[in-house]
């Protein structure tokens, strides 16, 4: 199942080697430990730069959107196998 979303989420991150890596995601009152950060990319939105983190756990793919100006995280895509 593939869903496009725009849900505000809480994300716990680590700062390693000048990089921000999402570690844990809280969405819909559930905690999801992030097992893998598969791809990070950025995109321009007007004058600002938005960061996207494509991450996964054992059963789900999540695309997380970070607005570095407001430090806001959103879950924008969810893909669950089956």
């Amino acid at each position: 199942m593939h869903q496009m979303l725009h849900d505000p989420v809480d994300v716990i991150v680590s700062f390693t080697d000048n990089r921000v890596l999402p570690r844990r995601l809280r969405w819909n009152n559930r905690d999801y430990p992030i097992e893998r950060v598969n791809l990070v990319h950025s995109a321009r939105e007007g004058t600002k730069r938005i960061f996207y983190f494509s991450v996964s756990d054992a059963a789900n793919y999540f695309k997380l959107r970070l607005d570095p100006e407001y430090l806001e995280w959103h879950l924008v895509e969810l893909y669950t196998e089956g």
Binding site: N38, L39, S54, S56, Y61, K63, Y79, T80
Partner: peptide, 10 residues
Amino acid sequence: SVEQQANPFL
């Protein structure tokens, strides 16, 4: 390939 890199379920 970019999508398969981002989403391992693909």
